[in-house]
Design a binder for these strands. Structure first.
Lengths: 203, 203
DNA sequence: ACCTGAACACCGTTCAAGT
DNA sequence: ACCTGAACACCGTTCAAGT
């Protein structure tokens, strides 16, 4: 699994193949089936390993601070392992391994203990989790490829028309003026959700 | 492209192959390359077709109503074509075809015309788009498979421990008590974002 | 102009055979 | 107990050859 994670970090899940993992371990691909029941099981274990590293306990913090820490921690980890979000969100067959269940339970617990009703806690959980995974996946899919940044940007601007894409050009300018590794934009949406939830909390 | 979309709607993008499309058209897979430069170009065109159908103009509506209509319209379309979200968010190589650019421009324009600064409009755009695509993809990936619902649910519950997953069990109960096709949960997060933006609008 | 056969370089996975 | 060769049923794509 370590080998698979290293390879996936380096060249993406799409390029990850049993044969490649075998090569990296000096072994034929078929030998891997002695340790893992199939590629899906391997991918699932990789994802769960990442979930296991998300910070869930924040001592002496109110619910908002605590959930913000969990979400930003997850964001950081998913950026470090760019294949994880993709695998969680497009599984083909859903499964909820241990660490993921712990992660879900922890978010729900903190919402309930903050005073939300079961229904609002459910809604809140979905809003938070879909932002954490969804925003991060969006970000990962739209990163400028590091090999040829200038060519890429030039290509992109050639598509834009001054009249028809007035606000898009302005939007691009904002991105250049305030360069962001994604944390600011992620935090903006996150606070929108947390503050919105806060306003619905019965006093 | 029609053939490809029908097949993808029916059996998913993962199962979509050039050979299968060829079969469906009574032709060999290689013939398709007379009409399309490659599989990626085909997938990109399919996605853009979906973007083209998202409602962008809502007459006589304030910005919130208008953006809500666009987001829920997109949500509906992405549920009808379950491959679209996945393709947008995990492209491998980013591209912004025409209809997608129009969609982005339209959201940005409405935010700017509502009175948001360029920076807040950018933030708002990202929050909205990542919720629209991200929540929907989350939902699509976690739908209960229609073929074996009972088996699936039973399997899932067997994983849950009464003590360790107290709030998860409660969460599952909420889902049974308030069955939802996804629109309510989607709208909840959407309103969190729209209301949060509204509060930041200079008066 | 359009279609095809054959081929290339890949996949995940199985299974009998080796050590 | 672990590894392998050979095989199966797949991929996307190219290209020379056909009509």
């Amino acid at each position: 699994m370590d080998a698979a994670m290293t390879l996936a970090d380096a060249s993406g899940v799409r390029a990850l193949s049993m044969r490649q993992i075998g090569d990296h371990l000096g072994v034929q691909a078929m030998s891997l089936y002695n340790y893992v029941s199939g590629k899906n099981a391997l991918l699932s274990a990789m994802v769960d390993h990442v979930f296991g590293e998300i910070p869930l306990e924040v001592p002496n913090a109110d619910w908002k601070t605590s959930l913000r820490a969990t979400a930003t921690g997850a964001h950081d980890l998913f950026l470090a392992h760019p294949w994880a979000c993709e695998l969680v969100l497009t599984p083909g067959s859903i499964d909820f391994p241990n660490a993921r269940l712990r992660y879900m339970e922890s978010i729900l617990a903190r919402l309930r203990q903050a005073g939300f009703s079961p229904l609002d806690a459910s809604h809140g959980y979905h809003a938070l989790d879909s932002h954490t995974l969804g925003y991060t996946l969006w970000e990962l899919g739209h990163r400028i490829p590091p090999d040829t940044p200038e060519d890429f940007i030039e290509e992109l601007f050639k598509q834009l028309d001054d009249d028809a894409h007035r606000y898009l050009l302005e939007h691009a300018k904002v991105h250049f003026e305030y360069p962001d590794d994604g944390t600011n934009d992620f935090a903006f949406g996150l606070d929108l959700i947390l503050d919105g939830l806060d306003a619905r909390l019965p006093r």
